[in-house]
Design a binder for these strands. Sequence first.
DNA 1: CGCTAACCGAGACGGTACGTCCCGTCTTTAC
DNA 2: GTAAAGACGGGACGTACCGTCTCGGTTAGCG
Lengths: 191, 191, 191, 191
Amino acid sequence: MSQRSQPDPRVGHSRRVICRAALEEFAATGYAGFRMESVAARAGVGRSTLYRHWSDKAALIADALETLNVQPNPDRELVAGTARQRVELLLSHLARALSDSPVAACIPALIQATEHEPAVREFFHRYSAQRRHRLTDAIAAGVNDGQFPARVDAEAASAALSGAVFYRRLMTDDVADAEFIGALLDTVLGH
Amino acid sequence: MSQRSQPDPRVGHSRRVICRAALEEFAATGYAGFRMESVAARAGVGRSTLYRHWSDKAALIADALETLNVQPNPDRELVAGTARQRVELLLSHLARALSDSPVAACIPALIQATEHEPAVREFFHRYSAQRRHRLTDAIAAGVNDGQFPARVDAEAASAALSGAVFYRRLMTDDVADAEFIGALLDTVLGH
Amino acid sequence: MSQRSQPDPRVGHSRRVICRAALEEFAATGYAGFRMESVAARAGVGRSTLYRHWSDKAALIADALETLNVQPNPDRELVAGTARQRVELLLSHLARALSDSPVAACIPALIQATEHEPAVREFFHRYSAQRRHRLTDAIAAGVNDGQFPARVDAEAASAALSGAVFYRRLMTDDVADAEFIGALLDTVLGH
Amino acid sequence: MSQRSQPDPRVGHSRRVICRAALEEFAATGYAGFRMESVAARAGVGRSTLYRHWSDKAALIADALETLNVQPNPDRELVAGTARQRVELLLSHLARALSDSPVAACIPALIQATEHEPAVREFFHRYSAQRRHRLTDAIAAGVNDGQFPARVDAEAASAALSGAVFYRRLMTDDVADAEFIGALLDTVLGH
DNA sequence: CGCTAACCGAGACGGTACGTCCCGTCTTTAC
DNA sequence: GTAAAGACGGGACGTACCGTCTCGGTTAGCG
């Protein structure tokens, strides 16, 4: 447990500010436009410091994205309300995350990087699975206690609902607003 | 109707082989890894010929993608069968396109490029809309003649179905096989 | 003797206007800056016409320079006057040619090209020899009839006089004016 | 005296080897054929290193030529001997420099570049002036102490002598050998 | 007077060098 | 002893010309 030598506090600080800067850069310019020099400038750090902590561009990006995967909200409030309310809340969260959050701007870049960067794929699919499982669980609970019709397959439904929100975000110029989510829930989970 | 002045036949040939090569390159390496030199080599063409016809990398990619947007199959067979069969056919086509076609490998790159390249976005959203509308129409017809339940909103349902197939392709390691599509149809369009 | 077919007058015209344009270009930009495209534009001619008549840039330049080598003035007037006047006239001509004539601007380019283009060297040395021989003859005549001192070697003197004028033109910022030529003649040919 | 901040020793080394390589290239191919890539290869250096230190081809050439302008020999031996011996020595040096030295091969290229490159002109005229002044001084001294005839104008004579040697080198196929220099001295400086 | 052959312009093509930008490595100096 | 500064080799970019080529359209001069 005991470290041979106290880790230099500057190292931790560097890594933090650089990761933050890397995410900004990733969101701003995507994988193609990502410049190490820009990251260093954003972080107010020398370019060589980047390479001291990460072997190359791909490693920095992958590591920076990993820091996104902190899910501080266990959504305890979800225990209350109807099954539909819980699902609606989860979907709204997703829709909002795809519009606002720092993650949002990274999603398209992530999808692209996923194709050629195994480390990114592993992260992104794991990240998606976490989100999706909470939705699947909520749906399954609703089916079990009869709030949702029996025809509903929880897996298929959560893919359909999540997919629809992603679809709106990525393949259309429209946004997934409350109205859209309402129609979606009626269609997929309605009686 | 009258051709102003016979265009040089070499131009047409060059543009064709280069577009083909550009799509291969785009699919193989994505937007970030796309190298003009590789395209020229794939096409068996001088590098300068690329710049003679397109001002830069972005213009070539956008134009090459445009050539994807040829939809030769009017899907005449869709007139027969039940509404569910027609929808299932469309979804299967989509799932297959996302696995096999030359388009498939471009989709992640397209999604990424869509964020920063207006020309790519315009193309990709238009392309998606064409696909989606055929699905929406099929669903709406099924709702109208009572084959699908009245709760189904055609727009929401087509986003849910298309989205689910995309979701499987992009955010998971699973594939959208027939079984998945069956469960999906039961859930979204079932009685 | 009889030509198979009358030479096309267009060819002669093209060659003439192109040579003229090539000389302008050569004088204006030198060997390094010489652009075939500029020559074609100056001549109001298609770029391919240049290559139809000359194999490449070097051939065109060499040929165009050759057209400079027309010496229409047999300088008959030189028979009159003293030997010194005749030499002074020849030197003044040279000095003026190095300032004004179309040749003038080509000289530095010629000197450079001479190093690597045998065809240019052959032309330039022949051209220089013609000029020099007339000067040498005038000096030798002056030595023979006692107008110039016996110490004067006609060859050396003509190289010294011509060389001095070239030297002024090429290696200094001064010009070879009448005063300079006077001092030169006093020094080299004076008693 | 105090060095502001120790310069990186690699910079000095790079500049040196590159200048050396540039002179070789300039002498070998002249201004027109000068290739940055060849210089980099000769110097065993990356192409980008050239552009890191000089903005472009012209700047590198001008700077490299400047390094030629080191005149290590104060010619102390010139104090001894007759005026004619001193002048003969200077002329022989010039003739030899125009045949052998690294400078020699650059002269034609310099003359050409002088026409269009102010930086090169400034250097070349300054360089020539230095050489010429030493000759002028030696001649003037000879005239003053009566070793050379009074008709000799030192300026004109030095231009005539230097010019003759250049003339032989540039405008003829002959070389300025000892015999030629002897005849030249007899003619220009003889009694 | 009309045919045919040549010349011509326009410009696509494969190349090559340019000068720029960025990568990932490295060395040097300063704090 | 770590970090900044930045030189270095490498490689892709987009530009500018080169010399070759393939096109039609015009034009000269012979039949």
